[in-house]
């Protein structure tokens, strides 16, 4: 039932989407943890190690693992499950692989919907593993309650660490492969960068060493994740984040709907087709065409 429902939601089948509408009021109970970081940093291995710990603490958990869709063929290799082999036959663990299906930013369009499904199904913890992302790809911050950024030694110096992007959205940073040379340096650089960025923050971002394949440091990571939920609840940040997530999901939905209407538009909307032709003939500038069309959508915020 749950797996098939997930497929219907993923395929934007109206039956799946309507079921999600009915289930939505039951959601909001799960703690959603995003796991993100560059390709090869060890996200899947760390999720697998976390699952072991979560199960040992007697909790159930679900994982959504997103891998990229080929822009050429539309196909995808979903390989995150390999690292989670041990959990294949455990009834308390639900692992679902998702292809990004054309969305940039580290997630698939349907990821939020599947999170709601797993939440409604009663999984107290939902881990979302993003596509391997570099400096960009921060969409996870508007879906997850807690964002874990997985880094590895040798990925850059102190300047990389103060650039905008992924690290900014990390609530917890893990330096995985901590048994490799350079791991202590990486942690020091990250610590220094975080202390520059948030000198007065009420909560210090933990930067934890881990070795996912041996499980070293993973208990501490799970404790840090659980501590973050407590902090979110006590500080009132949970409400702020949930509000932000709802806003982001609704706006993303509107953008996608508009985008699709525009893509299908040239044949369905004669005004659009004629404006585009006039731009091509240099009778109208692209900006003028955009303005004419956006006026049709309603009053601008500037006017």
């Amino acid at each position: 039932m749950l797996p098939r429902l997930a497929t219907l939601v993923e395929n934007e089948d109206p039956r799946g989407l309507e079921a999600l509408d009915v289930l939505y009021p039951l959601t909001g109970k799960a703690h959603v943890v995003g796991v993100t970081g560059p390709p090869g940093a060890g996200k899947s291995s760390l999720v697998a190690a976390l699952l072991d710990r979560i199960r040992a603490s007697g909790r159930r958990a679900a994982v959504l693992a997103v891998d990229p869709t080929s822009t050429i063929s539309g196909g995808a290799v979903l390989g995150d499950r390999i690292r989670m082999m041990e959990q294949h036959a455990d009834e308390g663990v639900f692992v679902r692989s998702m292809a990004s299906r054309g969305r940039q930013g580290g997630l698939a369009w349907a990821t939020a919907g599947l999170v709601h499904l797993l939440d409604a199904a009663g999984y107290p913890l939902v881990l979302v593993e993003t596509v391997g992302t570099g400096q960009d790809g921060t969409d996870i911050a508007s879906l997850a309650d807690t964002v874990v950024v997985v880094e590895a030694p040798g990925l850059g110096d102190g300047i990389q660490a103060i650039k905008s992007g992924l690290l900014e959205v990390g609530d917890i940073v893990v330096v995985n492969k901590a048994d490799q040379p350079g791991a202590d340096d990486a942690r020091r650089l990250l610590r220094a960068a975080f202390d520059l960025a948030h000198p007065t923050d009420s909560r210090e971002t933990p930067i934890l060493p881990a070795v996912a394949i041996t499980g070293s440091g993973v208990a501490e990571l799970l404790t840090a994740i659980d501590d973050h939920v407590s902090w979110l609840t006590e500080s009132g940040q949970l409400t702020v984040r949930r509000e932000r997530a709802a806003r982001s999901e609704v706006l993303a939905g509107i953008r996608m709907a508009l985008d699709r209407r525009l893509e299908a538009g040239s044949s369905h909307m004669p005004e659009l087709a004629s404006l585009i032709s006039r731009v091509a003939r240099r009778e109208l500038s692209p900006r003028e065409a955009v303005e004419t069309l956006t006026v049709m959508l309603g009053p601008s915020v500037n006017s």
Binding site: T69, S70, I72, S73, G74, G75, A76, V77, L78, G79, R81, I82, M85, H88, S97, A99
Partner: peptide
Amino acid sequence: ALRDAGFEVVYTG
């Protein structure tokens, strides 16, 4: 090959 043919392929290892 299946990826290149447009399928979504989950590999278990």
